[in-house]
Design a protein around this nucleic acid. Structure first.
Lengths: 66, 66
DNA sequence: TGTCTATGTAAAGTTAACTTTACTATTTAT
DNA sequence: ATAAATAGTAAAGTTAACTTTACATAGACA
């Protein structure tokens, strides 16, 4: 699933590691999500949306779904 | 994580099995999500929201998060 | 030059989200 | 009464979302 995370993180000036700290996940997990290697769990998606004060649907794009 | 799925499904008059068919998951998975035994994946949450024409945030309640 | 920070990726392990099969219990209808 | 549909749960297996550790690359800077 595609997402805006890299852009949103860039606007905040945060490194992947700094974002991972705020989300309580590893920087590798941040990288994997940003590069689309896997999708976050639903609780993590909520946490990401809360951090950026956005809706899940405004960060993650599921339009290419089955 | 809590959710409205049982109520929404009831309003449509669908069984857990019928909902599972529409979501391409087993009725046991529907049951587990409804009873809060586990959370759906993010792609499945999108699929559920699309089916009921709602936002993920209006179906799933993450207020009790870490 | 060498070091530090940031990023990307890989391997190996754990956990949670799924699956199928199966058993039980309750309701509804014939 | 009995059969059928629905719901809840459990056990065992698979897959995907995480973890830690590690290695490689590129850019900034003393």
């Amino acid at each position: 699933m595609e997402n805006n995370l890299k852009t949103l993180r860039g606007e905040k000036g945060w490194s992947q590691a700094a974002l991972g700290d705020q989300l309580d996940i590893s920087r590798q997990s941040v990288n994997a999500i940003e590069t689309g290697r896997y999708d976050p769990s639903l609780p993590l998606a909520f946490k990401i949306a809360r951090l950026f004060d956005m809706k899940i649907e405004d960060i993650f794009d599921d339009s290419g779904a089955d």
